[in-house]
């Protein structure tokens, strides 16, 4: 009953090759779980699989179970063997089940907030439409809830902001608004895919604080997908590191950063300025020049395979 989302033995594959090759992950309720990895590691696809949003060419197998605390109104599709409150299986779930889960129980924000905001509708309209459609609120109620949402994500001057269009906000404010839209139906899980990657550090800091607050204020659990271990260190409670479709290490934040068990995790930290395993620039150059000779085709993390996988990730966004 403590896990909001439980992924077990998840496999995602295209016709020709696997993207995610059997991973387990438990998102603790009221926590931020970081999913780290480089491009092509399968981290984004894992997040998309939760919402059944994989590209048509990919198939998922295994299990993704969403804790069903407010089971009223939602059909518990095949909740055999769930924990006390029951849970909903999302892999292979019907359109109705996914429809009831998307946005209402599990919401998502992306790297580029413009993808989730309609450029020609006011922020207020987008929020109230969402609220009225999903929650059946009246016009006035929806409006006041929308204003409250903008206040919650710290968009300055919430009331006036309702009448403005997305392009009238800065990138950071747009990301906050995208988060507000995602939070509209009080989801229990928020999937955040590189939510701060496109932002400047000063703006990123604010969004990270917001994510932390949303979790600490209760209710929300966040699966934070990012390649940026600095961001992980700042907000994640637990961190799972993925590489080429597999989990190489999963540990509480502090343990991962101070006592990484896996060689790959250690190599990531070695290349990360400011980490306790940081190597000097000279050492890094030596490794780059001596250690990886002929890396092309040998399947290192830097090999072309990763680049082509990135196409798949990018294309789905």
């Amino acid at each position: 009953m403590t896990d909001a989302l439980t992924i077990s033995e998840l496999r995602i594959r295209t016709r020709s090759h696997p993207i995610v090759d059997g991973i387990d992950l438990a998102l603790r309720r009221g926590g931020i779980h970081g999913l780290a990895g480089e491009s092509g590691s399968g981290k984004t696809m894992t997040a998309l699989a939760v919402l059944g949003l994989l590209p048509g060419s990919m198939t998922a197998s295994g299990s993704i179970r969403l804790a069903d605390d407010t089971s009223a109104g939602v059909t518990t599709g095949g909740s055999a063997g769930g924990s006390a409150g029951g849970s909903i299986e999302l892999v292979g779930a019907s359109r109705q089940v996914l429809g009831a889960v998307r946005g209402r129980r599990v919401a998502m924000v992306f790297q580029d907030p413009s993808t989730s905001l309609h450029p020609q509708l006011t922020v207020g309209r987008q929020l109230t439409d969402h609220l009225r459609h999903h929650l059946g609120l009246g016009k006035a109620a929806a409006r006041s809830k929308a204003e409250a949402l903008l206040e919650r994500v710290r968009v300055p001057d919430a009331r006036a902001s309702l009448a403005r269009y997305p392009h009238q906000f800065s990138g950071g404010q747009r990301q906050r608004i995208a988060i507000a839209v995602a939070l509209a139906c009080d989801p229990s899980v928020l999937l955040a895919d590189e939510p701060t990657t496109a932002l400047d550090v000063t703006v990123q800091a604010g969004v990270l604080q917001l994510l932390r607050e949303l979790v600490d204020d209760g209710g929300l659990s966040i699966l934070l997908v990012t390649h940026d271990l600095g961001v992980m260190s700042a907000v994640a409670d637990e961190v799972t590191v993925m590489r080429q479709g597999l989990v190489v290490e999963s540990a509480p934040r502090e343990q991962l950063f101070t006592a990484p068990q896996d060689a790959y995790t250690r190599s990531l930290l070695a290349a990360l300025p400011g980490s306790s395993f940081e190597e000097s620039p000279e050492e890094l150059v030596e490794e780059l020049v001596e250690g990886r000779e002929g890396a092309a085709g040998s399947g290192g993390s830097d090999a072309p395979v990763a680049a082509s996988d990135h196409d798949v990730e990018g294309g789905a966004r």
Binding site: Q111, G171, E194, T197, A198, L199, D200, H310, G314
Partner: peptide
Amino acid sequence: MTDARTTRPDPRD
């Protein structure tokens, strides 16, 4: 003003 940075490469670039 602060939106245009993309740290991930677009493969179609």
